[in-house]
Design a protein around this nucleic acid. Sequence first.
RNA 1: GGAGAGAUGGCUGAGCGGUUGAAAGCACCGGUCUUGAAAACCGGCAAAGGGGCAACUCUUUCCUGGGUUCGAAUCCCAGUCUCUCCGCCA
Length: 419
Amino acid sequence: MHNLKEIRKDFEAFIKALKKRSTNVDFKKLKDLDIQNREFIQKKETLEKEKKDISKSKDKSLFARSKEISSSIEKISEQQKKIKSDLNDILSNIPNIPHSDVPDGKNEEDNIEIKRSGNIPKFDFNPKSHYELGEKLQMLDFDLATKTTGSRFVFVKNKLALLERAISNFMLDIHTTKNGYEEVSPPLLANENTMFGTGQLPKFENDQFEVKTDEGSERKFLIPTAEVILTNIIKDKIFDKKNLPMRFVASTPCFRKEAGSYGKDTKGMIRQHQFYKVELVSIVEQNKCLEELERMTDSATGILDLLELPYRKIILCSGDMGFSAEKTYDIEVWLPSENKYREISSCSSCSTFQAVRMKARYKDQNNEILYAGTLNGSGLAVGRTLIAILENYQQKDGSISIPKILRPYMNNLEKISIN
RNA sequence: GGAGAGAUGGCUGAGCGGUUGAAAGCACCGGUCUUGAAAACCGGCAAAGGGGCAACUCUUUCCUGGGUUCGAAUCCCAGUCUCUCCGCCA
């Protein structure tokens, strides 16, 4: 969320900065409401001052006047609250401003590739898709999941379940021992305010799975990514600068409705309602965001290097970035069956955008209070890593050789085959 | 599910109708002392919002929402959350 005080300083610049994004913000209304809001605050405060003075004076002759004032305050206050709430509605639906590094563009076609790494495997046969491979191995079962649960779910079984677990453990180990992240095993449900903090609410409620709770108690949502719960670790806090940076990693299931993606990636486990993801979150001083973004992205690509999977790194254009991001790198892994790169990680700096929503601040050496910078990135999506391994490491006979680095996590198994 | 207790500043924790925005301690910042550091001592230190170029000033805030009162952190009602004990389950 943006700081109104900052917006006010140069309203035109604010509009201009957001032009890069495809938004339909009613800027005029925003400005008018802000002015109205402040007018009402002033009216209210004048009355409050008078009332306070009467109360302090303990002068009985003025008590009647005080009562009058109370009812006036009530009226004005009501109007002011309405204005403030309208103002907040607009404000909380405005996305972050793209950093100047970010290329202008409308959609994913305008993203820019900045790096390629690894060798694309050459096959002397027609490479199969992960779901063909998995079903043939009898270790991916989509039909069963449809029966027990519904579409966009999958049973991962036998050695592929082991592989999935190995991937997760391997990534956690690297991030905790080599990259300086602290491992967290967080709750998988988040309340409304937490979801607001990272920007999932109010705008993207349709993408969330809400869990039914007792009447009257707080609303709860299945986390769409561990980013939500990990970033909110610092919610409502003012901490010392010396605590920064904070870096957290968690491997959790993620739940997404994937509303609006009907017909997209319907086959296989590319796009599921539930998937595991190893998530990285950093909390940093506000001027260190971009530096940390590079570090985080390197942590993510480091995993692909170790797994010896070919990938490329792209910078998202202004039109393709997520709501809370100021700058995002996507990392895409090579999928032989599709003959193209597919997203396996997305690393974003959110500048202070989420911190303002969460009221997460720190004190610097002058005891000045500043909003923190937050970053999140996948390190990596476990399901998609599984897919990438299946496809890139497939053999002519339909078996899968296991990346060397993962073997210690799989009882030194070298190959997954039907028996 | 039954019975209690609680929610106060960055943290711990007093206050239980009228200069209380709030004692005390810790943390933090500045100073004295010291070759330096520690300790000790002295001083400072809540946030948000409004007005002002600024110095500064005003308002709000002691979980949330109502109520009583000229006046509420303090009293009353409703709600949310947390904790403890018992039961049940893991």
